[in-house]
Design a protein around this nucleic acid. Structure first.
Lengths: 260, 260
DNA sequence: ATCTGAGTTCAATACTATTGAACTGCATCG
DNA sequence: CGATGCAGTTCAATAGTATTGAACTCAGAT
């Protein structure tokens, strides 16, 4: 029997808590909003919106700036702590920093959560590269190097499940939108040990990733990557510089898990 | 009439949502936990803990890794978005990056929320400086340069209110723990336009901050700072280099608000 | 002065969050 | 190998409360 606990249980649940999080997400969407605006957005009575806002404000998770409500920075605090407690972040961070420093490209740590890729950490070798993919971002697996590396750690059935849930939306002409094509590629990644994303999500951007394997599964399902402008990522450089550096970093990380 | 809306309203509120956030905070404290562990920690029935965990898991804010529950990275995502939506972050980030680059010290952006100082952004000129104060951290005002700069934007009565709420805990022998002494210092900061923290929270660390003033109050109450080892922060350097650089950055930021 | 729109308060009701107890499954121990 | 204990899960009953529409306040616009 597979102990795959990843499918949500969906049993009985507490509606008011769900409502509260719907409200939180709506405030975030609207950035800043008033009571009526929020109520209209969610199609709920004003009084309901109001009492929820009061509750969240008492708890410090929502703040009122002038006439508008917005989410409080407590979420920033919580997010930082959540990341801090993930062992993969603790272990891999300095390696990825080094990686970025030595290659001069952006280094990232990615993680699988609920069938999507989460960008746990991102480090830039020099300043000025803008908010390309923000830390904490969730996205589909199929169009990022990290995502495909994560899929390669799963069985074909699990990959199919994930595709079923999120589909294969297209972003560029290179995006893989066919299930079988993706499964074939994932299989290749399994045998060669690394994944490449070539303008599959953003034009002009290329990326290479390797999964972090960890027998005890304390790292969860995670991967590290290097990302940069396509023109700097030719085959020659990938083979001779980027891939060895990535593999070395992955090795160091895996060793730390083994000897912990 | 003062439109100071900062005091929490504390009217009627939704208990199950409060319970949910107590559970969230407990999971964070425990890092990872089981149902019984959580129930014991909060002194609630197992069944209550269980249904809340299911709810939060369905919503994607809690994940189950192996046998243990932990907070999901959705909080990381949310935290990043919350910060991204704060105008002070948008406007001040690059200035603080430059500041850190040119002075070679750590630059930060701080914000007042619910009477405490929040570290919204932190940038390091070189690598390797460890997790001194993590992004998103909330702390009392009186023992940080940013906090004191923020207090200087408030009236004495408001400062008293804040002290009343959080007290003046001591961290080092330099920490200001006397109300009147703090009020005097805050007054000095008002007239000279910058604050200094000299080993008042952490031994060996010194810091200077200037408030960001913004007539339309679109920046909220915020401040920027430079922090570093005390031995590099002598009077001479502060006067001739650090303070001018800080003031310049603050000016640029304020101008952007004016001309927006 | 009136009207409009937003925020807030309130009382009634239907609903549901909470709870203890019972059940399951697993691992450990005798 | 059976018994025991422990963690997680399910369930039905009840007390309690989340939700709701309507009423009220207030500020600004007409």
């Amino acid at each position: 029997m597979i102990d795959d606990d990843d499918t949500a249980p969906a049993g009985r649940q507490i509606d008011s808590v769900e409502n509260a999080f719907n409200i939180i997400e709506s405030i975030q969407e609207l950035e800043r909003c008033g009571v009526t605006e929020l109520a209209d957005h969610l199609d709920i009575p004003k009084s309901t919106a109001h009492i929820h806002l009061q509750t969240l404000r008492n708890l410090g998770y929502v703040v009122k700036e002038g006439e508008k409500y917005q989410l409080g920075l407590r979420f920033l605090e919580l997010g930082g702590e959540v990341r801090h407690n993930r062992s993969i972040f603790q272990v891999a961070r300095s390696e990825v920093d080094d990686l970025a420093g030595s290659t001069g490209e952006v280094g990232t740590i990615g993680y699988e959560e609920n069938g999507q890729r989460v960008l746990v950490y991102r480090t830039e070798p020099f300043e000025g590269v803008s908010d390309n993919a923000p830390t904490g971002e969730f996205t589909e697996m199929h169009w990022t190097a990290v995502g495909k590396a994560l899929l390669s750690q799963r069985t074909d059935d699990e990959v199919r499940d994930i595709i079923e849930r999120f589909g294969l939306p297209r972003a560029t002409e290179n995006t893989i939108t066919d299930v079988d094509e993706l499964l074939t590629e994932v299989d290749e990644i399994r045998s060669r040990g690394y994944s490449v994303e070539d303008e599959e999500r953003v034009k002009g951007v290329k990326s290479i990733a390797v999964p972090i394997s960890d027998d005890a599964n304390r790292a969860g399902n995670s991967a590290i990557s290097i990302t940069g402008p396509k023109h700097r990522f030719d085959e020659e450089r990938i083979e001779s510089e980027l891939l060895p550096a990535l593999r070395n970093a992955a090795n160091v990380i895996e060793l730390q898990y083994k000897h912990y």
